[in-house]
């Protein structure tokens, strides 16, 4: 958007007025985002190769990649990753389904709100990982206790977001639905749920980070397999390149998680 006004009367004294907020719509070439990451990797590689830092403490990216490839081919990554994926997906699914359900009920029914909300808010501030020993005693050291802790960590942000999403639905839309013959159940299904969906997704995204954190913590405390125990294991052995591979995979896992949620949000909320 180039806007210019010219003073045509005196050509010698011409002053062109330019758009002074052009930087607001400045376009960046598509490769710019990669430049930063590549630059950082290059710098890291250089520092490691030139021997500024002992490779024992900071292995070069190239070393991490080759170590990663070895661990991938000998199946170490696959077995650890699949154990972790099972836990986080089960926990996340359970926590979000129950979270959305409970959030809808608390938001819609006044009595449920009065009874349930104080309970939710009193359990919410407990750091969930503190409950792991308790769950191990109750549910055993197996998968169930880890899945439960993740589910619980996901449940709360989802409940609270769903709840406020329901409260924020325009009452006029509920009136409109009732006018056109909607039953209570249909009001929840066709008005409250879609109306709360943007907030529900905010909760789901928040919970994605929490679930990853709980996964790693729980696996560090009580697991033989999984990315968390793998990272801890190689830390204890001082094999930092393998430790870094674990961290790298966790970072990729988090990224994928976010991408999937974003894609799902676009699919489920096309009206925004």
């Amino acid at each position: 958007m180039e806007k210019s006004i010219e003073q045509t009367s005196q050509k010698t004294n011409r002053k062109v007025i330019k758009n002074r907020v052009a930087y607001l719509d400045k376009q960046v070439p598509f490769y710019t985002p990669f430049v930063g990451i590549l630059g950082l990797l290059l710098l890291w590689e250089l520092i490691a190769q030139l021997g500024f830092v002992s490779p024992l403490f900071l292995p070069a990216p190239s070393v991490i990649i080759t170590t990663g490839w070895e661990m991938l081919t000998n199946g170490e990554i696959i077995s650890n990753l699949s154990a972790s994926l099972y836990r986080i997906l089960m926990g996340y699914a359970l926590g979000s389904v129950f979270g959305i359900l409970v959030g809808l009920i608390l938001g819609f029914f006044r009595t449920a709100d009065a009874i349930g909300t104080p309970i939710v808010y009193s359990i919410y501030p407990i750091p969930k990982i503190a409950l792991l020993p308790l769950f191990i005693l109750w549910l055993g050291i197996g998968e169930l206790s880890k899945v439960t802790i993740i589910a619980l960590g996901v449940f709360f942000p989802v409940v609270i977001n769903t709840f406020s999403g329901v409260k924020n639905v325009d009452p006029l839309l509920v009136k409109a639905a009732v006018t056109f013959g909607s039953s209570r159940f249909n009001v929840i299904r066709k008005v409250i749920l879609p109306g709360a969906l943007p907030m529900i997704f905010a909760g789901l995204k928040l919970a994605a980070g929490t679930s990853l954190l709980l996964l790693v913590s729980a696996e560090m405390i009580a697991a033989q397999e999984g990315l968390g125990s793998m990272v801890l294991h190689y830390g204890n052995l001082m094999i930092i390149s393998k430790l870094m591979v674990g961290v790298l995979i966790l970072s990729l896992l988090g990224l994928t998680f976010n991408k999937v949620l974003k894609w799902l949000e676009g699919k489920l909320i096309p009206w925004q």
Partner: peptide
């Protein structure tokens, strides 16, 4: 305020 459902 028309009260159309934004998701429909």
């Amino acid at each position: 305020e028309n009260a159309l459902f934004p998701w429909r």
